[in-house]
Amino acid sequence: MATGGRRGAAAAPLLVAVAALLLGAAGHLYPGEVCPGMDIRNNLTRLHELENCSVIEGHLQILLMFKTRPEDFRDLSFPKLIMITDYLLLFRVYGLESLKDLFPNLTVIRGSRLFFNYALVIFEMVHLKELGLYNLMNITRGSVRIEKNNELCYLATIDWSRILDSVEDNYIVLNKDDNEECGDICPGTAKGKTNCPATVINGQFVERCWTHSHCQKVCPTICKSHGCTAEGLCCHSECLGNCSQPDDPTKCVACRNFYLDGRCVETCPPPYYHFQDWRCVNFSFCQDLHHKCKNSRRQGCHQYVIHNNKCIPECPSGYTMNSSNLLCTPCLGPCPKVCHLLEGEKTIDSVTSAQELRGCTVINGSLIINIRGGNNLAAELEANLGLIEEISGYLKIRRSYALVSLSFFRKLRLIRGETLEIGNYSFYALDNQNLRQLWDWSKHNLTITQGKLFFHYNPKLCLSEIHKMEEVSGTKGRQERNDIALKTNGDQASCENELLKFSYIRTSFDKI
């Protein structure tokens, strides 16, 4: 039985969820670079991206490699990797027998973001014989899940209580170790020597080791999670996991709180800001991140802002960003909400898709409305799209047979046209069989910064309504002859009103 693990408890099935942008060198404390989270699957090609990484700022997932063999891993080693800020997950990587050479110096898994409450997941690794993470000293947050690894031993010899604050939620089941077939031998045991430290858990006094050649490092209890030197002297209180010299914040392997210019500090002093819960960055760093993602459509890219001495992905609820200094300031009234469309555009074809934009005031991208039916549609669209004030790209209304009016965009005031449909149009209306009105132009103002209007096959939309939009939106004169079809717009509506004058002759039985 794995020490510190839980057996036999019912657990939810383990679901495996399925960018080499360097964020800056980590400095003297770390020998390499800070790398983003990685999802490495199918083959070993991307694994080489770990070569210079000291910190993975995010998670590391290595999974679904069915053609790899043990010899493929023999020359692979990433000794610079010290810390993973989120979680480490391995799933069905064939041929991998140990992690001792792959990650010989991995010391800390912070667990800032977890995989279903777990910071370390080893699942269905069919050839893994031992973990071998002999320098792993601290899992700051989260638990361990090690399950269905039929060859995995050296679990009962690990004292997880020396690595985690609590072992109650560890789930370590259905491994070879369960069948008591392992016969784990710690260093020196074969020669009758006791080389590794022994600890007591559940009444068992057991030597602690990761492999037959690597003991588990056990520091004096007084050192807590700070770690200790090879001689057993406690590291500085700002260290986490390990250090090369005692009581020196510049000799830590990793930091308990924050890293700044080669030393570990309790908090980031001005003019620095907390970033990702582990390091200090200056304003320029946060500003660069903001600008890199301002026009990016890459998933996970955030326009970072500053709030409460932190550089964070977005302002919290009730705050909006001051564009001059990136500071989050309290909103006066309802907060603006910028919604970034991942692929640059979004099609609204149902109430469900409209709900995804609920509360958005600025759309960074283009909207395509293609709704053919739905219950209580006008009210639903207004509830979900009615706060949109600005669209950076274009607005396209296409084959939306259920629409009679666009009044559900009740606050839309600006279409920038930074991206144009077919390279020309910022407003595009095609084949809307029941569209009769755009907006009530006596109450609604709309500016279209650039781009043209396109109207074709809107049989109940009168040309007068379209011409009014040209005047109000500032697009009059931009359109070419064929942009607004004269014969297919309003051709099934009563669009022309003329005053009919009647004269009559009164007659009676005795007068003409």
Rank of each mutant, 00 (worst) to 15 (best):
P31R: 06
G32F: 08
E33V: 06
V34T: 07
V34S: 04
C35T: 00
N42K: 02
N52P: 12
C53V: 11
S54D: 04
S54R: 15
E57W: 02
Q61N: 07
M65V: 11
F66L: 08
F66A: 13
P70K: 06
E71N: 13
R74W: 06
D75C: 04
L76K: 14
K80D: 02
L81T: 13
M83S: 12
I84L: 06
T85G: 06
L90K: 01
G95Q: 14
L96R: 00
E97G: 13
K100F: 06
L102Y: 01
L102V: 10
L102I: 05
L106F: 02
G111Q: 00
L120E: 00
I122Y: 00
I122Q: 01
H127F: 15
L128A: 06
E130F: 12
L131I: 10
G132R: 00
I139S: 00
R145P: 00
I146D: 00
K148R: 14
E151W: 11
E151L: 06
L155C: 05
I158P: 01
S161D: 01
E168R: 06
E168L: 14
E168Y: 15
Y171A: 13
K176T: 05
D178H: 07
D178M: 10
D184K: 12
G188E: 05
A190W: 12
G192W: 05
T194W: 15
C196N: 03
C196Y: 02
P197R: 11
A198K: 11
A198Q: 04
V200I: 09
F205M: 06
V206A: 13
W210L: 03
H214D: 07
Q216W: 01
I222W: 14
K224S: 06
H226P: 12
H226K: 11
G227T: 03
E231L: 08
D247R: 13
K251G: 06
F258L: 13
D261H: 10
P269R: 15
F275V: 05
Q276N: 05
F283I: 15
F285M: 07
Q287T: 10
K294P: 14
N295H: 13
R298T: 14
Y304P: 02
C311A: 03
P313Q: 12
C315H: 09
T329K: 04
P330M: 13
G333I: 11
P334V: 13
P334N: 09
P336V: 13
